[in-house]
């Protein structure tokens, strides 16, 4: 195939991915809205496995049973516990959940084709400008998400992840530039490492932020909702403790990767390209801010009075600074990084 054909394939694949993500998002939204009508029993209550000592207000969760939407046995015990006839609605909820995930897998496949063929079109690694960074980063987000679905039953993140994907691809189209070779300053192995690590960390930060939002919602609901009013979508999520654990794991993965991207690979490349490893260019300032805020998140989890809610809010601030670094800095500030494609 010629580079033009690759380029066309890439553009079509990314466009298709956008549409399919949109459909996946709609499927998850329908799933949510039906759930609101179904008086879904608290899964976390359903999962209490024959505890010896019944402690009040304990959120008992067992591994492997966290937030299963479609597990027959789970639904069974929920039905029994709630003592309600959920049958048909329950089925529909599960069907839309599965549909959402299937569509997400399809969209991810389209996106993968889009990113790879972009590489063939440009005859280089496909992460040299903002458009490419956005598509690659999103591919990482969705891959991590699907991994979590597979291994940690994290399908409850579906709506937020697919919604984010649609927004991100929309923004990426605004930053679209045709495939082509790189300006000399961007032609470096360290740049490849720098950008791929930043995209990986960014993808994980995104998932972490999604989980932190759910954590805050669920923790608030657990504090404020009386036992007998616990119906609706939130109560089909895992306990706030389990959500927090997932958020922490994702962040704990992302932080060292971001450290490598922003504080090692980036400076090495900057040194080669511009003759200084750190120059407080706006992009660098915000990468540093992001790093410091996430270090704050990890600290907050170990500081009395800041665990839980405080830490989750810091994680969300961290994600906001990451997004600003990635999008805002290119739009408003001027610096040496800005010629990288927008």
């Amino acid at each position: 195939m010629s580079t033009e054909q690759w380029a066309t394939l890439s553009n079509n694949a990314v466009a298709a991915a956008t549409v399919v993500f949109g459909l996946a998002c709609i499927a998850h939204l329908i799933e949510w809205s039906i759930t609101r009508q179904v008086s879904g029993a608290d899964t976390s209550r359903a999962e209490t496995v024959g505890a010896e000592i019944a402690r009040p207000a304990r959120q008992a969760v067992s591994a492997g049973q966290v937030g299963a939407f479609d597990g027959g046995q789970d639904a069974q015990s929920r039905r029994e516990l709630a003592g309600e006839e959920l049958g048909a609605d329950e089925e529909r909820v599960a069907r839309f959940g599965r549909l959402g995930i299937a569509l997400t897998v399809l969209a991810a496949a389209c996106l993968l084709v889009g990113v790879v063929s972009r590489g063939f079109a440009a005859e280089r690694a496909p992460w040299g400008n903002m458009y490419e960074f956005a598509t690659l980063g999103l591919l990482v987000v969705v891959t991590i998400y699907l991994g979590l679905v597979r291994f940690m039953k994290a399908q409850w993140l579906g709506g937020i992840v697919t919604g984010f994907a649609v927004c991100m691809l929309g923004l990426a189209f605004l930053a679209y530039v045709p495939a082509g070779p790189l300006v000399p300053a961007l032609d470096s192995y360290w740049l490849l490492l720098h950008v791929s690590a930043a995209a990986t960390a960014g993808g994980a930060f995104t998932i972490g932020a999604g989980a932190s939002i759910f954590y805050l919602l669920k923790a608030k609901a657990e504090r404020e909702t009386p036992e007998d009013q616990r119906t609706g979508y939130l109560w089909r999520l895992p306990s706030s403790t389990a959500i927090d654990r997932l958020a922490y794991r994702v962040h704990a993965f992302a932080f060292p990767v971001w450290t490598f991207a922003a504080l090692i690979a980036g400076p090495i490349w900057a040194e080669h390209a511009w003759g200084r490893y750190w120059g407080w260019d706006p992009k660098e300032v915000w990468a540093f801010i992001t790093w410091v805020v996430y270090a704050g998140y990890l600290h907050a989890r170990a500081t009395a009075g800041w665990r839980g809610k405080g830490a989750a809010i810091i994680a969300l601030i961290g994600f906001a600074t990451f997004l600003f670094d990635f999008i805002g800095v290119n739009l408003i500030a001027s610096g040496q990084h800005t010629y990288s494609g927008l």
Partner: peptide, 24 residues
């Protein structure tokens, strides 16, 4: 104390912000 370390980290992040908006 751990709390001071946390507050200092957050202050450091905050203090860096003007450096990206005001020319240096």
């Amino acid at each position: 104390s751990m709390r001071t370390a946390l507050l200092l980290l957050l202050m450091l992040a905050l203090a860096a912000i003007p450096g990206s908006f005001i020319p240096q």
